[in-house]
Simulated scan of single mutants.
Amino acid sequence: MLSPLPDIRTLFRPLQPTTRGSEGQVLYREVLPHKDLQNWIYCYWELKTLAPLDTAFHYRVVADGCMDIFFETAHPDQPYIMGFSSSYTEFPLPDVFHYIGVRFLPGAFPLLYGIKAAALTNRFEALENVVPALSKSIALINAITAGLDDVSSIFDKLFLTALAHPARQPDNRFYEAVHLILRAQGTASLNQDLGTGVSPRQLRRLFDEYIGDSPKTFSKIVRFQHILQAKPSAESLRKNKIFFTAGYYDQAHFIKEFKTLFGNTPAAAFR
């Protein structure tokens, strides 16, 4: 079985916004995977309506550095995979829906299933075109009657098997670079601090393989996610100017990058 990246869960929490504005009609929740999977998979999640919606619902997925697989419970035979995103994404959803998904921690899915992450960057694809065997296994899940709590035990069996027989062996130089970026909360100097024994060109190739984008873009998202985790108020953002300690040049730089990754201004996000 592969050894996990040390401390990844304590160093990085890929958060997604709540379903604010749905007036209690939409539920989003997460459950933990098996303990042996927790440094590879952040969570299993579900997003569903509690009652038919009167108005259109657009679910916003913010940039989190991860890859997800997901499916509508009415169609487990049509699972999708969403790659690394360098900006937020919005999904228009019908008046009734129930999605179940898996959020893999950075680098985990390409390692377990032998894909090149860059092939999926900023897009989603039918899982059967990427990992056909996994797609077939998910298609057998009767998620409509089982629900997330039962589906999570099925997921555990699938991914523990993958963890015992990964498609490739990890490159320690890549994981050392990821560890340094996470420990620095995305503020590491990529030229000075990532002393991993590889050239910038080689490091970019490794990040294309495992993450799907450059070390610089991944660092931006790590920095952004740490601000989300801190949950500052709009007032504390103005008073404490945490964007300086987070490595932004100035307030304008912070707001521009935040809007790209979140889809709204920091003031609106933390209202």
Rank of each mutant, 00 (worst) to 15 (best):
191 N>H: 10
53 L>T: 06
151 V>N: 00
123 R>A: 14
6 P>Y: 02
168 R>F: 02
125 E>G: 02
73 T>H: 10
110 P>S: 05
6 P>R: 03
112 L>C: 01
171 D>V: 08
157 K>S: 14
77 D>P: 04
163 L>S: 01
248 Y>T: 11
223 R>M: 07
212 G>V: 13
99 Y>F: 15
268 A>Q: 13
193 D>R: 10
29 R>P: 03
54 D>C: 09
226 H>T: 11
201 R>V: 12
155 F>Y: 14
182 L>N: 06
232 P>A: 11
133 A>H: 14
6 P>K: 00
261 L>S: 03
190 L>S: 03
2 L>S: 04
90 E>S: 14
216 K>E: 14
8 I>H: 02
222 V>K: 03
123 R>Y: 05
92 P>N: 13
42 Y>K: 00
136 K>W: 11
256 K>Q: 15
7 D>A: 03
242 I>L: 06
161 T>N: 09
184 A>H: 10
90 E>L: 05
5 L>R: 03
220 K>Q: 15
4 P>F: 10
182 L>M: 12
109 F>L: 03
245 T>V: 13
102 V>T: 12
108 A>Q: 05
219 S>Q: 04
263 G>R: 08
155 F>K: 04
16 Q>L: 14
66 C>T: 14
158 L>E: 03
170 P>C: 02
8 I>V: 13
137 S>R: 13
242 I>S: 03
214 S>W: 05
53 L>Y: 07
14 P>E: 12
42 Y>R: 03
40 W>Q: 01
87 S>F: 08
107 G>W: 00
239 K>T: 08
86 S>G: 08
76 P>K: 13
87 S>P: 08
85 S>M: 11
49 T>R: 01
53 L>M: 11
176 E>P: 04
33 P>V: 02
6 P>I: 02
162 A>P: 07
223 R>K: 10
75 H>E: 12
257 E>N: 08
35 K>M: 13
97 F>P: 06
130 V>C: 05
56 A>M: 09
23 E>D: 12
140 L>R: 15
75 H>R: 15
240 N>L: 15
186 G>W: 02
139 A>C: 02
180 L>M: 12
259 K>T: 13
122 N>W: 06
213 D>Y: 07
215 P>F: 04
17 P>E: 05
110 P>E: 06
28 Y>H: 13
131 V>C: 06
94 P>A: 00
148 L>Q: 01
163 L>V: 01
146 A>W: 12
57 F>S: 13
28 Y>S: 12
154 I>T: 14
211 I>E: 05
109 F>G: 00
159 F>E: 05
142 N>H: 05
29 R>V: 03
101 G>L: 07
180 L>H: 09
98 H>I: 05
43 C>Q: 00
74 A>P: 00
147 G>R: 01
207 F>P: 00
81 I>D: 01
164 A>E: 15
125 E>S: 06
47 L>C: 03
96 V>A: 11
